[in-house]
Amino acid sequence: MKRNEKTPVRLWAVGFWLLVWQAAGMALGRLWTGGHLLLATPLSVVMRLGELAVTAEFWQAVGWSSVRIFGGFLLASLLAAALAVPAARYRWVRELLGPPVAAVKAVPVASFIILALVWLDSGSLSCFIAGMMVFPPVYLGVMEGIRSADGQLLEMAAVFRVPPLRQLRWIYLPAVLPRFRTAASLGLGLCWKAGVAAEVIGLPAGSVGERLYTAKIYFQTPDLFAWTVVIVAVSVLFERVLLKLVDHLAGKAGR
């Protein structure tokens, strides 16, 4: 048996668990009049999602959170990549940045959210937290990528005096992009989870996190599930688009 073989998600398995979910929701509803508050059925979630999707507030909330979370991702990725360049070159930069990167990786995200609320307004919170989540994997991935660039090719380029930009394009980028892809995929998933968690705690007006919290307060279980589905869908969509873009660049750089 092959180890680490990724098991594909099969439609029949998804259908099976949706049926289990539907049956459990219906059973709870029959057993107890408030049962539907504990577990909304998939059908009620889809119907609620349909109702939400035609309102302007829904798209505003999705847009508000997406801009901040993806903005945090982009800013942190740029900063991480910019710092990874000197870190790959100079040991003292790696040593200097080692403790904060280790701290960001080790400290629970909830602690960071509470701390950040002391320093920042709730509107900037999800951006900051998303950035904190994405910085370590992107920094480490890009640094490893740079350090893994083929030393013999770099030496050849130095002898022939190939300009740095051409070396970047043809030697460094093919080494860095696969690692950046893995790091970005991991980071984007993390930053959506942490970003929405930050919104639920910080409650910035008009955010997805605020909607999620409101749904919980008022026992609007179908809303709670519907917003969760939206968060997963938006996260997957951003990841797909970003990875397509990186694959396109990697194809061009490595060709």
């Binding site: 013999q152 090719l153 030496e155 380029a157 022939f160 190939v162 043809w170 030697i171 490595g254 060709r255």
Partner: peptide, 21 residues
Amino acid sequence: AVFQEDRLLERLDARENLRFV
């Protein structure tokens, strides 16, 4: 230089390898 190893950009064709340098 011709090095002991070929040190070519393996995904590029012959002319692209020349253009790189």
